[in-house]
Design a protein around this nucleic acid. Structure first.
Length: 132
DNA sequence: ATTCTAACA
DNA sequence: TGTTAGTA
């Protein structure tokens, strides 16, 4: 596990995230209050966002102008976590002959796709009607 | 120069 | 959500 730590490493300050996501600092901090993201803090309380946080913010923006509210987005993220765990469990129980290295490679790709865009399109449509 | 928290003519 | 005030 080397690629994972890179994506979750706290790197950029809110100013950079603002440009990367085209979101206002106010919005970025607000989504944090709502529990959608959890950036690290420096010794002096300044926020540091990871690659994953930025990716998350971009997803939030998409879901938002698709008509979902904070509650709906929370459910989608929670559901993504369940899906990731389910995928991992499935692979492990189905192919016990895989070496750790092979298993890791499979999981890394599966998790990346599931966490990104695509696997959520189904539930996305459902939640859209109840939380907009 | 930047970011942070809190608050609202 | 924007914006502004007073800091760190």
């Amino acid at each position: 596990m080397a690629d994972l730590s890179r994506q979750s490493k706290p790197l950029f300050p809110i100013g950079v995230v603002q440009e990367l996501t085209a979101l206002s600092a106010r919005q970025i901090r607000y989504y944090e209050e709502q529990g959608l993201i959890k950036p690290e803090r420096t010794e002096t309380k300044r926020r540091l966002y990871s690659f994953n946080d930025v990716d998350r913010l971009l997803s939030i923006k998409e879901y938002l102008d698709q008509g979902l509210n904070i509650a709906g987005i929370k459910m989608i993220f929670d559901n993504d976590l369940v899906k990731r765990e389910r995928v991992a469990e499935t692979v492990v129980t189905t192919r016990p002959e895989l070496s750790d290295g092979e298993l890791y490679k499979l999981l890394k790709n599966e998790l990346k796709e599931a966490g990104r865009h695509g696997k959520t399109s189904l539930i996305q449509g459902e939640l859209g009607r109840f939380f907009k």
